[in-house]
Design a protein around this nucleic acid. Structure first.
Lengths: 357, 357
DNA sequence: TCTGGCACTCCACAGGGCAGAGTGCCAGAA
DNA sequence: TTCTGGCACTCTGCCCTGTGGAGTGCCAGA
């Protein structure tokens, strides 16, 4: 199962950072993050004490702010402006100050209902990505269930012309891959049937990465005359298995990028460019921890164009193991608790749907 | 073959519009469009005579401009600003003043080379859409070859469990569709083989829309006990054919939207939203004429969010007939001749690639 | 029918002044 | 020792104003 977020928001024993970071100072940071995420404007000491009952005066808060700034958690665009959280500030917030916000019961029902309507794998992924984009009002990314962890449900061979076959691979996640096979000579129906039966007999139910090992010696069992055909087919099959590790990804919610910020012409462009690169997205999701929800903030993301964004991602799977990942990309100034809640919930329900089908 | 653009740029016999629209006035309009597309700024009379040798003075041009404005071809953001073409102005430009700009020989080679590297249909489409986005520096859209015009290459039935089949449909364009079939009772291998053979015998080579007609009476030829299974399979097959008319579309180059204009936060959002709706894109391409290149400008586009864009689209196909469409979406202020040239060229080459494979 | 000249309009931009929000620091209270 | 209220200061954002320039429309003359 995906993860369980952070245990608790309030904290008693802050790991020493630079200075002891007492509780109130952390409360101030939390308040700053919350306000800034809400208003998109630098937040000052006075506004802060008005909106949160911190029990102290603005002056005190100012002292805390100065300390937080010195430690690099917040930052001042210019003298006499309010404060803005830095990447490091968000990091602390996510790690120690925020609780994952669970979805409400009606929300859960809606999610489940929406996903249940899907008719096939494509539809599941398409619905998931749209749903996630809508829930978080950000850009959503969903990876197709990976072949690596799937198992063979069926392998089919179809002769198109005497020397041309089509190889179709069906996995337990409902994914179908097809490839043409040019055989060295004509292939009879008998051989085809025999080969089909043996392929399925030996590889059926196997995890895809194990298939080459399992079928290694298959050709040896055939009449010498047929061996070149058999090994041609095997070669193509193995290629398919290998190639398809480059996986597909689906994207939605790019229109939400327009809510990015005021200055966004410059911000949005590299993000859009990054989003068009499957490779970048795959790497992004690939860096997600297998078991837990991963949050990467601003410059923690390797890709340069995404330095002003954060990524919340998590694995999902049909059983107890994750077969693929999904996530959300938004401005560093995002509602982390809410986003994490939505991501976690969606991942769980997709997992369930996949397990049922 | 797609189309051949407009016969000639210069024109002799302008269809009467409101007033006779003499040649010089049209030259002025052409110049305005060209300059505005280049600079993105309203163009004035003085700059116009400096950059194009129109052979007359600014004052004269001003008179022509006044006339063009009265006829609705150009428009003035405010007094004492230069002129901007209106949708109607672009329309006239495209219809009568512009020639499609052919690609240069190296460009053609590059296109062909790039597309030839594709390994399967998905890859062809993916490469095409990226190429088109890059060539035009705009948003590119490519529709997958439609099932409607394709023919059946093979139909495969695979038994997964005693009562569960998988139906796989392979078309001549290389597309593969699969569906699960829940049968009313167990299905023997003999029946399966018989059914498979008859399906392929009767429907093989047929255009997809004709398949239901061709197979209408198939069930009657079977043992009464098997008829319900056969008709279940047929139902699913027909559903697949019908459903798959909702076609897939691929998109690229959204980052180019950032070059839209200065004010674009407001402009870009509805466009991004529209681009995420498959339905909208399908309708957009659907309105493309079958035989010729279609250009729709600004408010000529039904979808409201796209009222400040233009769409250049054309059909492409593996033979003499178009099986799908592709196009480009950009600001009304786009380089029409260049865009049209690129669209036409890419469509031709994809057609060729598809025909060869 | 075209041209040169002229008066006029309006935007874009820079500069100055002002209000407001926010800060840092300090001395005094708890 | 820690918090608080007060105070002087800084800086942005906004409004207002004035100016330069680009562009126009119109008219009289070639």
């Amino acid at each position: 199962m995906p993860d369980d977020g952070k245990p608790d928001g309030r904290l008693i024993d802050p790991r020493p950072s630079v200075r002891p970071l007492d509780e109130r100072r952390l409360a101030v940071l939390r308040a700053i993050v919350q306000d800034y995420v809400g208003t998109e404007e630098p937040v000052g000491s006075k506004a802060l004490v008005e909106r949160h009952n911190l029990g102290v005066s603005p002056a005190t808060v100012r002292n805390d702010m100065a300390a937080l700034e010195e430690d690099g958690f917040i930052h001042q665009p210019h003298t006499s402006a309010g404060r803005i959280p830095t990447d490091k500030g968000y990091r602390l917030f996510v790690d120690r100050l925020a609780e994952v916000k669970p979805m409400t019961a009606p929300e859960r029902r809606a999610i489940r209902h929406f996903l249940e309507g899907a008719v096939d794998l494509d539809d599941v992924v398409a619905r998931t990505v749209r749903l996630l984009a809508q829930l978080t009002r950000q850009v959503a990314v969903v990876q197709y269930p990976s072949l690596t962890r799937s198992t063979v449900r069926h392998i089919e061979l179809v002769s198109l012309t005497p020397t041309k076959l089509m190889l179709v691979l069906i996995t337990n996640t409902g994914r179908v891959e097809q490839r043409m096979v040019d055989c060295p000579g004509p292939v009879g129906e008998a051989l085809l049937g025999d080969l089909r039966a043996r392929l399925n007999g030996m590889a059926g139910g196997c995890r895809l990465p194990e298939v080459p090992t399992v079928l290694e010696d298959l050709a040896a069992g055939f009449d010498p005359a047929d061996r070149s055909t058999v090994s041609t087919v095997l070669t193509v099959l193995f290629e398919t298995l290998a190639e398809q590790n480059e996986e597909r990804i689906m994207l939605a919610g790019t229109a939400n990028l327009t809510r990015f910020g005021h200055d966004f012409p410059l911000t949005i462009r590299p993000v859009l460019e990054a989003l068009e690169e499957q490779v970048v997205l795959l790497r992004l999701l690939g860096e997600t921890a297998d078991s837990a929800m991963t949050v990467r903030i601003g410059h923690e993301i390797a890709h340069e164009g995404l330095n002003s964004t954060s990524v919340v991602s998590v694995g999902y799977g049909s059983g107890d193991q994750s077969v693929a990942k999904l996530g959300v990309i938004g401005p560093t100034r995002m509602d982390y608790p809410g986003t994490m809640g939505a991501v976690r919930a969606v991942a769980r329900y997709v997992g369930q749907i996949l397990a049922e089908s």
